[in-house]
Nucleic acid binder design. Sequence first.
DNA 1: TTGTAGGCGTTATCAG
DNA 2: CTGATAACGCCTACAA
Lengths: 338, 338
Amino acid sequence: MSEKVFASAQEVAARAGVSRSAVSRTFTPGASVSAETRRRVLEAAEALGYHVNELARGLMRNESGIVCLIVSDVATPYRSHLLCELTLLLQNAGKVAMLINTDRSNGSVDRALRQAIRYRADASIILSGMPDKSIAQLCLRSGQRLVLINRDDEEPGPLRINLDDYEAAGRIVTAFVRAGCRRLAFANSEAGTPSLMARERGFVAAASALGIEVFVERHGWTGYEAGKAIAQRMLTRAERPDAVFCATDLLACGFMDTARHQFALSVPNQLCLAGFDDIEQASWSSYNLTTFAQPVSAIASKAVEWLSHPQPEDDSTSQGQSIRLHAELVWRGSIRGG
Amino acid sequence: MSEKVFASAQEVAARAGVSRSAVSRTFTPGASVSAETRRRVLEAAEALGYHVNELARGLMRNESGIVCLIVSDVATPYRSHLLCELTLLLQNAGKVAMLINTDRSNGSVDRALRQAIRYRADASIILSGMPDKSIAQLCLRSGQRLVLINRDDEEPGPLRINLDDYEAAGRIVTAFVRAGCRRLAFANSEAGTPSLMARERGFVAAASALGIEVFVERHGWTGYEAGKAIAQRMLTRAERPDAVFCATDLLACGFMDTARHQFALSVPNQLCLAGFDDIEQASWSSYNLTTFAQPVSAIASKAVEWLSHPQPEDDSTSQGQSIRLHAELVWRGSIRGG
DNA sequence: TTGTAGGCGTTATCAG
DNA sequence: CTGATAACGCCTACAA
């Protein structure tokens, strides 16, 4: 008995005494059905526990309503925040989110995308650091729309959303120097993602323009533990830095904790610190970290907006669109002055 | 031209010079195809860029491979951690995760579930605090399997995974008393979810058994800010508590921060603190919080395991299964002694 | 506005 | 092991 679970439009039609097309139209927004027919259909549907089968609908329409979210490090504050925002907006736009969790292994994103294709996802949003080339190719061939967040791929076709990482990093140099710091350092991970590297380059370049040489350390992966490890190394150097820009808030939290608890340094008196992302923890009073805010809501809404927009396929160049958002400096207490 | 995007099994068959059934079998694990046929099919598929259409497959098989994750507060450390673990295991099990983000509005979970049904999800995993009754009804009627995590619904049918919240809370009373604390308090949110309330009841009961009356404060929602607010209230009381059990690590972090930075209290010397969840931040050296670990991996694997398991439908009682996992006390530095 | 007919891409079934 | 055929549940013409 457990076989026949769902009622089909067919059965609803029979019960309502109308044709199956009438049922179909009732559940298709913007179709013409008389009020009376609609009422009877709805009643029959309710009685039978009818639910539109999106699988079949997607098959017909060549449009599944599925948007694939390809993301690594889901449990990270910044990523989960973005994920949250994205799913909310997607739902409001009548789409549904399929979450694919990629690890750092090679070809991971590729496999994920292939899965998305099998479910005929209308689009994919990639917020995963790993580079995995030829993705756009795959997407284009399968008619998927693609949004790349904080990646630097030069592939044509998709929408690319990026921040002004390079410029932001420059601005923090000014802040450090104004606070009287001269021994600048940059704490980065070995992940080497485009945005991370842009921050590094921007920081080094801006300092260099002021005649300051930056000590750069790259270590481990972009998390709290890596921040601790980097602090360990940097703060035992003969020439200890008096200002450190961390590529990420998570790194900054780790850095700050070992600076304080292990090296008994006072922030910001003896050491100025800044991060990037403005994760929730940055505002916690134990850290009170000066940092750059990822415009998470803006990123999410730009992405979903573009997806909901009817595609301007006419554009023969099809070069894709690139959006550059501003990372606002959030001034807190980890840099002197202000 | 942009209409015809995908090659169908039909076309692959034509190119490979076999029947479409042969193509189907090639892509169905455990079907019998000769090596030669398989090779030719695979070659043609590759050339044509063929990808199985899971929509059509799901339509036929009455099994979409989709598992719906219904979750609120995705951006929270504990939730995102669980989400991460779950999606990973699901993927390994050959399923795909559909993420539905519920807010705290009423009927939110209900709408979510309805969406899941429309996509003919094979199962739903609910890790959302909101109670929303009659969910099991809806699921059962639609043949979905259901996993309830940290909820207390007495509904029949689904798998329920819970912790020994009540007992755990009792154990922390012992720890506090052993540390010499006598003025115990419990910090809770107003969310009132079953697990939160179980912790409260367990704490109060165990203290009561020792002749200690617990001061309970419930305020706001289960986050860092609420923890700060509760600390604000509790620590200005005439009879200031010397040990506080927070229903959640997030609450504990907020509590600890205002206790230290605003009331200049030393933890654990003047104030003992404990939390629940063992989120990553609890181990950060600024907090070093003694807390109970959510067995996230175990929860996730139990859930996915049960989902992958062929359902023992025979069980006429169909009372569902209830799994009770142990929350291990993680001893750190926020309670004296140890 | 309504009903009829045909097809979307797949898998199950059953002969060969 | 292989190939034809019939569903699966829906939508989109087209004709009434």
